[in-house]
Structures are given as structure tokens and as C-alpha cells.
Write a protein that binds this DNA or RNA. Structure first.
Length: 303
DNA sequence: CCAGTAGCCTGCTTGC
DNA sequence: TGCAAGCAGGCTACTG
């Protein structure tokens, strides 16, 4: 599934292949994919057609393309299975094509038309239009009103680990629940939460109000590190006409230490000459994977 | 206001 | 073999 690094790869691909282009036609093939556009799919298509795409931006897993000369943006969330692809309009339609935008050549290139496609199997994601508002903490920066409640992600230059630490201390919940709360820090999903906790040697049920500065710094550094590594490994696929977001960057196959490794030896323990098997526990209608030896369950756990 | 949860979705896997 | 249940999970809307 697309995680923050994959969404960033998509953003870069769109910057290269779609930015600057006028939208000449819009077709919504499945209205569920514009669910979050309150005024309905016809309004979505009518307002988008005739606009011109500016340079895409991202916060967490939200991606948006400001419309040139307007105070609004095309907002995208890929959900579990969404993809944004840039194709030749003549290319055959893929199975789960939900929305398509015909893009005319930009002013500076004699290239032919292209088609921006939103493909989504499970329809957890979608596209919608929203107005841009100034960011609370940095009024010169604009973001969609519907994204304003989301915290900055760990790759954001204005990400503030100290502020996150203080907010974490003020919570009365478990560490992983807090990591998955997008209003605190955005962009962390189940996979990255497990990986970061493993790297920081912290258990997911650790009460947030017992976290000290050293631990929160270690944890947030781990999140940053994991995301940068994934971006480095998945960041090569945008050098083509196709903006590839299939989530199979190769990173998931090789570099995961906790997620998906239940029953396998913890690599860190193995390096120390010990054998400890990664365990998987039900958590929030999904699961958590961790090493019981280097991430021991805290005495006062908050699940 | 805060913590916690149901429900949205489809396709693949597992179990009877 | 066929069908149903289980699983994957980000996010919003809702409840307590």
C-alpha cells in the first residue's frame, strides 16, 4: 500500500509530468471516488475542467495540486490501493480506473496530450477539490482546509520534535495509538509505526505520558530514518512517463525488521547472538509486530 | 475536548 | 469444489 515515501514519489512524478498542464476534460467513472467532494461528481468535473495544474505538494499521505491562479487545489488521498498514473490517452483503461483528467500540453512543450488517471481497487482513497488556507504555524504556507488539522510529517522541514514530545506527554494513551494519530504526526501507518518502534526499542503499549525526551527523540529519529530509507529505495520509479505507486518499491521486501516478520528471529537479537522471535498481536482491528526481548511489554501498559 | 471504535471497500487466502 | 468468513488498513464520523 502507498505509504508516505510512495506518495512523495508520486508527487515528484506529477511535478515532472503533470505540472503546468491545462485540464481540458474530466470524467468521473465511479462516484465513490469523489465521495469527499461535497458538491458531487458533476461539480467536481465542471470546476476542474478549464483549470491549470500548478506544482503538487504533500503533507503526510495527502497530496494536492493547487490550481493555477485560484485559491483551491485538487486534493488526493490514495487510501489503501490508490494510484495516480500519467498515461497516453490512447492507453487501454486499467481495471479499477475511477477518474480521468485529460491534460493538454503545457506552454513550453510541444508534447501531446496526456491523461492523469486515478486508479483504486478498494476505494478507500479519492479525489476532491478544496480551498487553500494559510497554515496555522506558518501563515505564508497554504494547504487545503481539509488537511489543516493534520500534523506535520517527519520529512517536513518545519517538523518540530520538541512540540511533538510535549503533546505526546499530554496524552493518556499507548505509544502506537499516538503514532497513528495523524493530528499529532502525519504520514505514519501501521508498517512504519512497527518499524520505528522496533528501531527505537520501544513497545507499542508504552504509556505516552511516561516517555522521556531521550525516548521520544529516538523514536522520531527512527521514523524519519525509516522513511528516508524507503524514499531512497523507492524514489527511482518516477523517471518515466508512468507515475508508479504500486507500493512494491523493493523496500518492503528487503528492509523490514518487524512488520510481517512474525515467527522469524529478531535481527538485532540475532546480531547479539541471541534468538528471539518476532511476535504479532491483535491491535486496533489490525496487528502489531514486535520483538519481546528488545521491546519488552511495559509494566503499566496502555493498549 | 479527549479516547476509543464502527464502517467504508475489494480481492486474496483460509477453513469447513 | 464452493461458499463464507477472515484479513489487509487510513481515515472520518460517531459514541461515551
Amino acid at each position: 500500500m502507498p505509504e508516505l515515501p510512495e506518495v512523495e514519489v508520486v508527487r515528484r512524478g506529477l511535478e515532472r509530468w503533470a505540472a503546468g498542464r491545462p485540464v481540458s476534460a474530466v470524467e468521473v467513472l465511479d462516484v465513490r471516488s469523489t465521495r469527499r467532494h461535497g458538491a458531487g461528481p458533476d461539480d467536481f468535473a465542471a470546476r476542474l475542467a478549464g483549470s491549470r495544474l500548478a506544482v503538487p505538494e504533500r503533507r503526510g499521505k495527502y497530496l494536492w495540486i493547487p490550481l493555477a491562479g485560484e485559491d483551491s487545489a485538487l486534493v488526493a488521498h490514495l487510501g489503501m490501493s490508490g494510484q495516480l498514473l500519467v498515461n497516453d490517452p490512447a492507453d487501454p483503461a486499467p481495471r479499477h480506473l475511477r477518474i480521468r483528467l485529460l491534460l493538454e500540453p503545457g506552454e513550453d512543450d510541444a508534447d501531446r496530450s496526456r491523461e492523469l488517471r486515478f486508479v483504486d481497487q478498494r476505494i478507500f482513497g479519492g479525489l476532491f477539490l478544496d480551498r487553500l488556507v494559510p497554515a496555522d504555524d506558518l501563515p505564508g504556507q497554504l494547504l487545503p482546509a481539509s488537511v489543516a488539522h493534520i500534523g506535520r510529517d517527519p520529512l517536513d522541514p518545519a517538523f518540530d520534535p520538541e512540540a511533538v514530545h510535549l503533546r505526546l506527554r499530554g496524552r493518556r494513551t499507548g505509544l502506537k495509538r499516538a503514532l497513528l494519530d495523524q493530528s499529532l504526526v502525519s504520514g505514519i501507518g501501521n508498517i512504519y509505526a512497527d518499524e520505528a518502534l522496533w528501531r527505537a526499542r520501544l513497545h507499542y503499549a508504552r504509556p505516552t505520558d511516561t516517555i522521556n525526551r531521550t525516548e521520544s527523540a529516538r523514536l522520531l529519529a527512527a521514523v524519519h530514518e525509516v522513511m528516508e530509507e524507503a524514499l531512497a529505495q523507492g524514489g527511482t520509479s518516477f523517471d518515466s512517463l508512468y507515475v508508479n505507486v504500486n507500493g512494491e518499491s523493493g523496500y518492503f521486501d528487503r528492509s523490514l525488521d518487524a512488520y510481517g516478520r512474525a515467527g522469524l528471529p529478531c535481527r538485532r537479537c540475532a546480531a547479539e547472538g541471541r534468538v528471539s522471535l518476532i511476535v504479532r498481536r491483535p491491535f486496533m482491528n489490525r496487528s502489531s509486530s514486535y520483538c519481546p526481548r528488545c521491546q519488552p511489554v511495559p509494566r503499566r501498559a496502555r493498549w
